[in-house]
Amino acid sequence: MINEAIGEKKLAMGTLSSFFYFFFFFVFFINAACCGGKSHLQQTPKKHVPFFIFGDSFLDAGNNNYINTSTLDQANFWPYGLTYFKFPTGRFSDGRLLSDFIAKRAKSPLIPPFLQPGFRQYYHGVNFASFGAGALAETFQGFAMDLKTQLNNYYKVESWFRHKLGNDEGKATISRAVYLFSIGSNDYMSPFLTNSTILNNYNDSTYFGMVIGNLTTVINEIYRGGGRKFAFVNLPELGCLPGMRIIKSGNNGSCLEEARRLASLHNKALSKLLFELEKRFKGFKYSLFDFNTNLR
Rank of each mutant, 00 (worst) to 15 (best):
M1G: 12
E8M: 09
A12R: 13
S18H: 11
F22C: 07
F24N: 10
C34K: 07
L41A: 09
Q43W: 00
K47V: 01
P50M: 03
P50A: 06
L59W: 00
N63V: 01
N64S: 08
N65G: 03
I67Q: 04
A75Y: 02
A75N: 01
T83D: 15
T83F: 12
Y84L: 08
F85I: 02
F87S: 13
P88S: 07
A103H: 00
P117S: 01
G118K: 15
F119T: 03
Q121P: 01
A144K: 03
A144G: 03
L147C: 03
Q150P: 03
Y154T: 08
Y155S: 15
F161G: 06
N167Y: 06
D168V: 02
I174Q: 02
S175P: 11
A177G: 11
I183M: 11
N186M: 07
I198Q: 04
L199A: 03
V211I: 12
V211G: 06
I212C: 04
I212G: 04
N220F: 09
N220V: 06
R224M: 12
L235E: 06
P236R: 08
P236M: 05
G250N: 08
N251T: 04
K272S: 14
K272T: 14
L273M: 14
E278H: 15
E278W: 09
E278F: 14
F289Q: 11
L295I: 13
